[in-house]
Amino acid sequence: MDYFKRIRELREDNDYKQREIAKLLNVGQRTYADYEYNKTRIPIGSMIILAKFYNVDMNYICGISDVKNTFPI
């Protein structure tokens, strides 16, 4: 699974709107939508914020692993 599918899946599974996650990342809703639709690459810093927010490790959020390990502290 590609990261853009995974970030959408995480958002929807946790009942968040795109605008809420966009605010967390300090970007506009349209920019965040572009991340989910793979129109714009998401910056690594934003990926880390999302991994911490959803408490999943980077391998999961990047689509490398299907195992939801917690974000390492």
Rank of each mutant, 00 (worst) to 15 (best):
V56Q: 02
V56E: 02
K23N: 10
Y35G: 04
N26R: 09
A51W: 03
S46K: 15
Y54V: 09
Y35R: 08
N55A: 05
R8N: 14
P43G: 10
I49H: 10
S46C: 15
K52H: 07
N26G: 14
L24A: 00
T31V: 13
V27I: 07
Y35V: 03
F53R: 12
Y32W: 09
D15M: 07
Y54D: 07
I44K: 09
A33H: 04
S46M: 12
A51C: 09
I49V: 12
V27Y: 05
L50A: 15
P43V: 02
L10D: 07
R41W: 09
I42E: 04
P43R: 07
A33Y: 10
G28Q: 08
D57Q: 05
L10T: 08
T40N: 14
S46L: 09
K52R: 10
F53Y: 09
Y16H: 07
Y37F: 13
I7S: 02
G45V: 10
R41H: 06
V27S: 00
R8A: 12
N14M: 07
E9Y: 10
L24W: 06
E36W: 03
R19S: 15
L50H: 02
Y37N: 15
Y16P: 06
I21R: 02
Y32D: 03
Q29C: 11
G28N: 14
E12N: 04
L10Y: 11
S46V: 09
R8W: 04
A51Y: 01
K52Q: 14
E12W: 10
I49M: 11
G28A: 11
I21S: 06
A22N: 08
I7K: 11
Q18P: 07
K39L: 06
R11W: 02
I42L: 03
I44T: 10
N26P: 11
I7Q: 02
I44G: 14
R8K: 13
K23V: 05
A33N: 05
Y54W: 02
K52V: 03
V56D: 03
K17D: 02
D34R: 13
S46P: 00
I42K: 05
R30S: 14
K23R: 12
T40G: 03
A22G: 05
F53A: 01
L25I: 09
I44P: 00
I48L: 13
K39G: 04
E20C: 08
L50F: 12
L24K: 01
T31L: 05
